[in-house]
Design a protein around this nucleic acid. Structure first.
Lengths: 161, 161
DNA sequence: GTATTTACCTATCGAGTCAGTAGGTTATTA
DNA sequence: TAATAACCTACTGACTCGATAGGTAAATAC
């Protein structure tokens, strides 16, 4: 599986919406600027996400986008499959299973590919937007601590004493 | 990572050469026919494999190809990297490490990608042509046993009694 | 020494994908 | 009614993928 720029943008946009969960609507422009995504390109991506019922929209003034379900219920693997196709190094899971059965000379090759896809799937299938957002925040605050302890940084350090 | 038709052909051709290891040279035509690979296309693939010193060749009459090293020493991950680029869902390992450091908003995303690439790499890096060939043979004989026990099949069954 | 066989080299091609861009239409609200 | 924001359609240039065509160079058989 290869994650395209489009797929990456989609995940970033969804993380943005996940961060804004429960706080109303967010416009494409807002996301585009914050996440450094070409606005018109983002429009197309959000259209796809809307079509797949990941996201919902309201139009006109004060319009915008929001997640359809809470961040804990949006799984990363689904988004990747939607934008960039199957999570497998060759074909998809069903095709691999089939070729393990039918290929008379090198079935082992497809067995191997299936193992790889299962390993990748295992990770991506149990990672949600909420989990990813958590990660982002953890890294962010760890960084604030390391490079130039700010007010917030100091407090944490002090607490650890 | 996505394995192309080209990459698949390369692996099949190498498995063919691995099976012929120690038995002299094999021509492109022979490989092309046995493995159902367009001959001219296979030529280009073998050229790349030769360039990368995976395979060596002799030309003229009685010419052909052979592996440069024993099948136990040829690792599948290297072949895939050669033909289809890095084994990572996004960029390569070095780029991912870099973006985990530099991305200020969504470093967690790249951490996740790195985990996926490590999982895939772990499998493909410790699989050699010899191991794959073994797999192929195991599946093949298991199949002979299941569907219509031939002479060879019967022997095995009888032994098990 | 000539014909055959095989690897090797160069160039080209049609189809498809990727990452956008452009320009307008419809709905909602101040 | 004007402004705003989602929505829709079409197009583009660059690139990749999976080949095909046609010839050159080297090694061997006869």
């Amino acid at each position: 599986m290869k994650i395209s720029q489009r797929g990456l943008y989609a995940l970033k946009a969804l993380l943005h919406l996940a961060a804004a969960w429960g706080q109303g609507l967010v416009t494409t422009r807002e996301i585009a600027e914050a996440e450094r995504i070409p606005e018109k390109f983002l429009e197309a991506i959000l259209a796809a996400l809307k079509n797949a019922r990941v996201v919902k929209s309201t139009r006109g003034r004060l319009g915008g986008y929001q997640l359809r379900r809470p961040p804990e219920e949006v799984v990363v693997a689904d988004i990747i499959r939607l934008l960039d196709g199957p999570i497998a190094p060759f074909g998809d899971a069903a095709e691999l299973v089939d070729r393990i059965r039918t290929e008379e000379r090198h079935a082992g090759l497809f067995e191997l590919f299936l193992e790889v896809r299962n390993a990748a799937s295992a990770i991506l299938d149990h990672t949600t937007l909420a989990a990813l957002l958590d990660r982002d925040r953890r890294i962010y605050s760890k960084r604030a601590l390391e490079s130039g302890p700010s007010l917030q940084g100091r407090k944490l350090v002090t607490k650890r004493k």
